[in-house]
Design a protein around this nucleic acid. Sequence first.
DNA 1: TCTATTGTCTTAGTTCAATAGAACAATCTG
DNA 2: CAGATTGTTCTATTGAACTAAGACAATAGA
Lengths: 126, 126
Amino acid sequence: MVEFHVDRGSGLPAYLQLGRQVREAMRLGWLQPGDRLPTVRDVVATSGVNANTVLKAYRELELAGLVEARQGSGTFVKASLGSAAPEDLGPLRTTLAAWVAEARSAGLEDEDIYALLREVLSGGEQ
Amino acid sequence: MVEFHVDRGSGLPAYLQLGRQVREAMRLGWLQPGDRLPTVRDVVATSGVNANTVLKAYRELELAGLVEARQGSGTFVKASLGSAAPEDLGPLRTTLAAWVAEARSAGLEDEDIYALLREVLSGGEQ
DNA sequence: TCTATTGTCTTAGTTCAATAGAACAATCTG
DNA sequence: CAGATTGTTCTATTGAACTAAGACAATAGA
């Protein structure tokens, strides 16, 4: 079961945070086709956001074709995200973890690491 | 000179995007103490956001002690961010770029990469 | 000193995220 | 069937983000 964590004050709208977390879980293989998302009322109880907000997040995911809502039974993962083969993910994670350890021992904070990755991903230009 | 890029529709408020970009530039060494930020009117002309929005971003940076606004002359970087030694940043960037290349050749998209990093940084649990 | 530049403030208004509270509709379970 | 569960819709309201357009204040430079 996926656990949502809505960070008020991060600036990002709650419904976007929820949507992103679902997509991310799908990319990492934590959520696969057929899996059921937490109930709207579950999320309300867990994260404190309003039912309409959760619904908005779920509706966007449904519109994107990622999940399917079945009234009375729940919302289910429909498609699969993540373009990588699951067996490739493990080694890549290990290598990345090693790099992160190195970066941290060089004094980089998480924000530095994010900045560096964003720079590399965007091509390093600009 | 730093060039701002405000992405409407990303959901993140414009003033937060501006602030984040300044911090990021400081972390990567593109902006150092003494450097001048783009003029409020420059940012307005470049990014299309309102002067009040830019002002809000700059004021938050000033409140955080990162920059200093001097009326009539501009806004200047005051402190230094980035906990890493600049000479360490280069090698780390190279290693990371190599990893990214490997990840991409395994089929990972940028979003997959971000998800993976976020997982590793948060300890890999949950 | 004069002028352009820059940061700053004011007022007013629009849009949208989010909340609250309640009700309805489809489905599952016993 | 009966009741619980789940998704869904509705209306009204609050508050934040953002815009618009203009004016003022301090500084730098000729």
